[in-house]
Amino acid sequence: MKAKKTIVLSVLIVLSFYQCKDNKDLQTKDASVTTVSTKSNEKQGQAFIKNDEGKPTVLSIAIGSKDHTTLVAAVQAAELENVLVNAGPLMVFAPTNEAFAALPDGTVESLLKPENKAKLALILKHHVTPGNYSKDFLKKFKQLGQASNENVSIEVKDDDVYVGGAKIIASIQAGNGIVHVVDKVILPEN
């Protein structure tokens, strides 16, 4: 009887060790195949959500406009897409291609260079106000605080509104704010 017990115990011990070995094998084998997938951060974020139900954002309005290809190229070069689809509210003063073309020769080309990304971003942010006001309502303002951390002046001449010297020539309501099309690039003082 006692002998029988001992045998049973031995078998148990052997089995337990066997089981252990088995697990270890499994562990090493699986550890070698473990991979964690990570996604690149490029082209990720709100700007890349497919949404044809809602009102277009300030970004999609710019992208959809044939008069704003330079602005869009600049926004992409500065990687500001995700900012322009943010909850905002955002008021964007969008210079036309013509306005960019009126800058001194070589200015745009220079700004689009990777080494000037920060400078470009600052100029673009100088065209953005946190807010959402119609052209008429803007007449009540003397100045606006821009995302560049500088102010721009508001002037009213007849029925026209000038923002930092640029005239508002059209306005489009966006899902996350408003786009005012302007005839000049508004350059920050610094």
Partner: peptide, 28 residues
């Protein structure tokens, strides 16, 4: 002695086991 051996065996086995159920790496 026998008990100790069994205890050891199970203890070491438990380690193996817990790494199987608790650690992601061992079983994916």
């Amino acid at each position: 002695t026998v008990f100790l051996m069994i205890a050891l065996a199970f203890a070491s086995c438990n380690n193996g086991k817990s790494s199987k159920s608790n650690s992601a790496l061992s079983s994916n």
